[in-house]
Amino acid sequence: MMKRLLLLSSLLLSVAHGAPVEKTVTYEQGGVTLEGFHVYDDATSGKRPSVLVIHQWTGPGNYEKGRARQLAELGYNVFVADIYGQGVRPVPPESGKEAGKYKSDRKLFRARLDAALEQLKKDERTDGSKIAAIGYCFGGTGVLELARSGADIAGVVSFHGGLASTPGFAAEKGKVGAKVLVLHGAIDPHVKPEEVAGFEKEFNEAEADWQLTAYSGAVHSFTQKMAGDDPSKGSAYNAKADARSWEAMKVFFAEIFK
């Protein structure tokens, strides 16, 4: 009898929360096939706030899928972008070279970001007035490019991303409609204080709505356990900064999606 009750309770809980629906999505930009990842909870029907996730420098993988699942559990419709192209999943040092292609060609970078955003926008579950983008490292740079480009979304969140722009692609006054949240490692050696200051100046002059939070003791990649635990290497996981930044994102979403 007890086993039957436990089984019934488990089934009821499963029905209440629904089940995650996950699928690989192929799409194209500039003749290149891209492979994204879509996840949502089927307990909810109809349109809902949606989130675009931009990957770090090794391309979309298990880390991004894990974050997408976490977001889906919060009720969001989530799409993980592929900036590089189907099957292009480099490891260091090749990943640095691949990321560099897009950082040095912001026009191409923005085209790939826009292609992913369009995939999310055209999904029947997406509430077009409630879209955000989040990104990690390379992806953190990417979401700021979306904001700079004037993308029609509610907000962006950059987790330990690069903050510098390039000539001709800086944020312009009156054109940044998305609210911006930057979550930064206070001692990140890859994003130096002058780069932070440059970001602040750029977005102030653009009259954008932005926030920047720096986490003490955190270096680059502070949300990623695969970065290891040695801050002296410049990239390392920081559990406190990881937890605090995720909560900051949730508070930000509550504001922009209200």
Rank of each mutant, 00 (worst) to 15 (best):
A43K: 12
F37Q: 01
Q29H: 11
H55E: 02
V39M: 08
G46A: 00
T26Q: 14
A43I: 01
K47D: 08
Q29N: 11
T26A: 11
V51T: 09
K23V: 09
H55K: 02
V25M: 03
T44S: 10
Y27C: 06
V25P: 01
G46Q: 03
T24Y: 06
S50I: 13
D42F: 04
E22N: 14
S50H: 08
V39I: 08
T26M: 07
G36Q: 06
I54Y: 13
K23H: 14
L52M: 07
Y27E: 00
T24F: 09
H38S: 11
D41W: 08
T33P: 13
Q56M: 15
T26N: 13
F37P: 03
V51E: 03
A43W: 04
E35W: 04
L34G: 09
E28M: 12
G30F: 05
V53G: 02
T24C: 00
Y27T: 03
E22P: 14
D42A: 10
L34Y: 01
K47R: 12
E28P: 12
Y27S: 02
E35R: 09
G31I: 05
V51M: 10
L52H: 03
G36F: 00
S45N: 12
V53K: 06
K23S: 14
L34A: 07
V53Y: 02
V32T: 14
Q56E: 15
G30E: 02
V51C: 08
K47P: 06
Q29Y: 03
V53D: 00
L52E: 02
S50P: 06
E28W: 11
R48E: 08
H55W: 06
G36L: 00
Y40G: 02
R48W: 07
V25D: 02
I54V: 15
T24R: 11
I54D: 12
S50C: 11
I54E: 10
G30N: 02
Y27W: 08
S45L: 09
A43Y: 09
L34D: 01
V39T: 10
T24N: 10
